[in-house]
C-alpha cells in the first residue's frame, strides 16, 4: 500500500508536468514556426500568443489549455509488478491532479450527460500495459484534447476519390486529404501520429503511440522517414496555417508507424495532436529512484 501511494505522488507530478509544461522540442518547433511566418500576419500573432501562453502556464503551474484532454498512458513494468496496482495508482493520480486544478474535470457520463467531477470515468484515463525485462517501471503519458480528437480520421485503401492505392503514395494522399478536412479546427499547427495497417482499434492505438516520439527524431525505417519528411513539407505548402488563419506552418511534426494487417484490410489511421502537444514520461528504478523523461 505504501508503495502504491508512492506511485500516486509520482504520477500526479507526471500529470502536472504534462498539463502545464510543454516539452522543449515542441516549444522549439513553435519558435521556429513563428520565425518562419511573415511579420504582422495573423499566423505570426497566433504563434506569438501561443508561445506567451506556454510561458505563463509553466511559470504559474496552470493548464496550458482549459481542455486538458484524455490522459492516455503507456506503462512498461517488470515481471511480478501488479498492473492492477499501477492502474489504480494512475486513476487516483488523475483524481488528485483534477482536485489540484492541473486537470479540468473532463469525464462526462455518456448516458446521463453528467460530469463525473473527478476527471476519471469508464475508459478514462486510458491505460496500456506491457511487461518488459528491465527491473524499472516506465510510464509515458499524453493529454489528448477533444478538438484535435474530433478531426482525427481513419481511411481504408484503396480510395478511388483520392486516387490512393495500397502503397506509401496512397498513404501520402489520404493524410494530406485529412489535413485539409481538418483545416485549423484541431488547433493547428499540429503533429500527426499515423499508423499504416492494423485493424480499426490497433490503428488508432498505434497512431497515438507515435505521438510519444520526440519531434526531431528520425524514423529508423528509411522509407517511412522519407514519407514523414515529404508529408511535413507538403503540408506546410497547403496554406492552412496556425489556427487556420493561413500561413506557412500547418504541421510541426509527422510520425508514422506500421502494423501488419489482414489481406482484406489496409487502414491508414491519423491522430491529430494540437499545438499543445502535451506529453511527459517518468522512469522509476527498482530502488524507487525517479528520472523524468521528456
Amino acid at each position: 500500500m505504501a508503495e502504491a501511494d508512492r506511485y500516486v505522488e509520482t504520477f500526479v507530478e507526471l500529470v502536472r508536468r504534462a498539463a502545464t509544461e510543454l516539452p522543449p522540442d515542441v516549444v522549439e518547433a513553435l519558435q521556429k514556426a513563428r520565425e518562419r511566418e511573415q511579420q504582422e500576419t495573423l499566423a505570426q500573432r497566433a504563434l506569438a500568443t501561443i508561445l506567451n501562453n506556454v510561458d505563463l502556464a509553466r511559470e504559474a503551474s496552470l493548464p496550458i489549455c482549459q481542455d486538458t484532454g484524455t490522459p492516455v498512458v503507456w506503462i512498461h513494468h517488470p515481471i511480478g509488478v501488479s498492473t492492477r496496482e499501477l492502474g489504480s495508482a494512475m486513476v487516483e493520480a488523475v483524481r488528485r491532479a483534477t482536485a489540484k486544478q492541473y486537470l479540468r474535470p473532463n469525464a462526462v457520463n455518456t448516458f446521463t450527460g453528467k460530469n463525473t467531477g473527478d476527471g476519471t470515468g469508464r475508459g478514462i484515463p486510458l491505460l496500456h500495459f506491457e511487461e518488459w525485462d528491465s527491473p524499472d517501471i516506465e510510464v509515458r503519458l499524453i493529454l489528448k484534447g477533444g478538438g484535435s480528437e474530433n478531426v482525427s480520421a481513419q481511411y481504408k485503401l484503396p480510395d478511388s476519390r483520392l486516387g490512393a492505392g495500397r502503397d506509401l503514395e496512397g498513404v501520402r494522399r489520404v493524410v494530406l486529404d485529412a489535413l485539409v478536412a481538418a483545416q485549423g479546427k484541431g488547433c493547428a499547427p499540429g503533429v500527426l501520429g499515423i499508423c499504416i495497417g492494423g485493424d480499426r482499434v490497433s490503428g488508432f492505438e498505434e497512431s497515438k503511440r507515435q505521438l510519444l516520439r520526440p519531434l526531431p527524431d528520425t524514423n529508423p525505417v528509411p522509407e517511412l522517414a522519407a514519407l514523414e519528411e515529404t508529408i511535413l513539407t507538403q503540408a506546410n505548402t497547403l496554406g492552412v496555417g496556425p489556427m487556420g488563419f493561413g500561413g506557412r506552418t500547418t504541421l510541426i511534426g509527422v510520425k508514422i508507424g506500421v502494423l501488419d494487417r489482414l489481406p482484406a484490410c489496409y487502414f491508414v489511421t491519423i491522430s491529430y495532436m494540437c499545438w499543445a502537444d502535451r506529453r511527459a514520461g517518468v522512469r522509476i528504478a527498482e530502488g524507487g529512484e525517479v528520472t523524468w523523461l521528456s
Partner: peptide, 13 residues
C-alpha cells in the same frame, strides 16, 4: 472574432 485556441492562460489574464 477568433481567439487563439488553447491559449487559456493568456486569455484568462
Amino acid at each position: 472574432l477568433h481567439a487563439v485556441g488553447g491559449a487559456a492562460q493568456v486569455l484568462a489574464r
